[in-house]
Design a protein around this nucleic acid. Structure first.
Lengths: 324, 324
DNA sequence: TTGTATGCGTTATCAT
DNA sequence: ATGATAACGCATACAA
């Protein structure tokens, strides 16, 4: 692989001059500029970004830590993040934490050693101080960590409210909300808050099911939904994130319940999977591309030394399909 | 951020010695080793991997180019690849080509400039010579490029055969195979070959539908499947990759056809989506984790200067669920 | 057992 | 308009 030295030698110049034309800095005669370009083409020269990074103290890399890109939401979000980062000249180092604390810590250390310019955190298994001690540009997805780390989320509260109202307006008399643990300080919990508030306000009986069962575990998840309908047979409305909602649809069918006639189901996310289901899932759309755009923007502005808003909340929208 | 110099100064030693304990090379007294460790901990020293990369001419980074990680198959495969790479001390630079030729070329150049140690290519929009001129460790997913670039794929031929035989054994009399363009030299085309062979051999009427319509485009894709059933109303068996199969199920239901009673459907991939469908999709399983493992292994061995097998084909398996 | 000098490829500063 | 040199942070060959 040709280096700047090879180009300089071949062009009968010094590396300084070559570097100058490479970076369009200072004065260079049209003649030498031409020559340098020609030699660079001849030698198929590509500047070594590692050396550049070392000198500039900038890697042009952003670390992305997510639970796993095989989850549709994070897959779609990661794609969008990568696109926006690339458009800005940044590369993405992908890290799947699988929500393993040790792994996440490991990844953070690795990213620091590799001098990424910033980290987008979609996984949150560490303690508050650990994130605060990072001492570099960070932005978190869906979790409020502290007053010093900016976060981004969709309007979970509004989403919960829209879902609740939709179910009520469709005539549901007994509804369920299925979610992960409410203990972590995730913005997703606002969905729960709004949902319960609405239901309470309208005196609609409701039940909240917290679970950490892996939604990809077909058997176990079905058992969970089964239990819900056994304990609350009158349930005629369910709100849960898209993947969970998909499981609910499955189980309803197996139980001989019709969707939406007997049970109405609303998802959250609007991952593409939602449109593949039978019936296609009504859901609350998170603006994934916009989120990615903002996430990258928040990191980039921190890298540039600018100050950024602390908690950005993006609007959601109801996508009404056939499950309600 | 502390550098090796800071550690050396603080410990009253030279950088050489510190480097030595850092890399466990040569002789060092237990005393100084202790001291160095202590100072490193005090200063929270992390070796700068950029500097290391420059010196070692090894970035410990692998480029991964896929159409998009938001596609379930690539999302799952990418997760697995990242895990295996990480276990081997390598990081993944994520590139979503969106099957855009210019973009893919751009990504390849970028990866070369960043001195990644190898590239895993899951996107194939470039010409053969371009890949051959890469001049670095490469392995491709599902495409045979040339005699010099190793590839990895699942046993598409066997998968096509299993699917065909299953449909036949279930009593199908008129089947369809839906696929992307057969023009590219992709191993996926072997599915088609085997499928058609089996159908011909058993004299089972069949039709092949090639399409490049985006499977995520609900309306258009439904129109395509609609057209299939309009032109071939007696179709009672369909083989297509999981996402396409999901669309077929959807459209069948909309047309009032029962699955599997009226139409039997077999997918290919066994992405997790398959188990979420109603009915759960019978499909040919690609061994995603094993593929990722081998892919990473093939790259690593090339990086190590070892020779590797040219075309690796991994076995597939029938996962029988309820759509057949 | 530890230190000195050099180089990895690049850019910036200061000369000329 | 171009060149010599130092520096980015680290690891090695060679000395001592």
């Amino acid at each position: 692989m040709a280096t700047i030295k090879d180009v300089a030698r071949e062009a009968g110049l010094t590396v300084t001059t070559v570097s100058r034309v490479l970076n369009n800095r200072g004065y260079i005669s049209a003649a030498t500029r031409e020559k340098v370009y020609r030699v660079m083409a001849e030698l198929d020269y590509q500047p070594n970004e590692i050396a550049r990074s070392l000198f500039r103290q900038r890697s042009k890399m952003i670390g992305l830590i997510v639970p796993t890109v095989s989850h549709p939401f994070f897959g779609e979000l990661s794609t969008a993040i990568e696109q926006h980062a690339y458009a800005a000249g940044y590369k993405i180092v992908l890290c799947n934490s699988h929500l393993d604390q040790e792994k996440e810590r490991d990844y953070v250390d690795m990213l620091k050693r590799h001098k990424v310019d910033g980290i987008i955190m979609g996984s949150h298994t560490l303690g508050v101080e650990e994130y605060e001690n990072l001492n570099m540009p960070v932005v978190t997805i869906d979790r409020q960590i502290s007053a010093t780390i900016p976060s981004l989320s969709s309007d979970n509260y509004e989403g919960g409210r829209i879902a609740a109202r939709l179910l009520i307006s469709k005539g549901c008399r007994k509804v369920a909300y299925i979610c992960g643990s409410l203990k972590l300080e995730l913005f997703a919990n606002r969905r729960h808050d709004a949902f319960v508030e609405e239901m309470t306000k309208t005196k609609c009986p409701h039940v909240v099911v917290q679970t950490n069962i892996d939604v990809f575990d077909t058997t176990q998840y079905e058992a969970l939904v089964n239990a819900l309908f056994t304990e609350h047979p009158e349930t005629d409305g369910v709100f849960a994130s898209d993947l969970k909602a998909a499981r609910v649809i499955q189980t309803c069918v197996r139980l001989g319940k019709r969707v939406p006639e007997d049970v109405r189901i609303v998802g959250y996310d609007d991952v593409r999977l939602a449109s593949f289901l039978v019936p296609p899932l009504t859901t609350i759309r998170q603006p994934i591309d916009e989120m990615a755009d903002q996430l990258v923007g928040l990191i980039l502005r921190q890298i540039a030394g600018e100050s950024v808003p602390m908690d950005t909340v993006l609007p959601v929208a109801l996508v009404e399909r056939s499950s309600t």
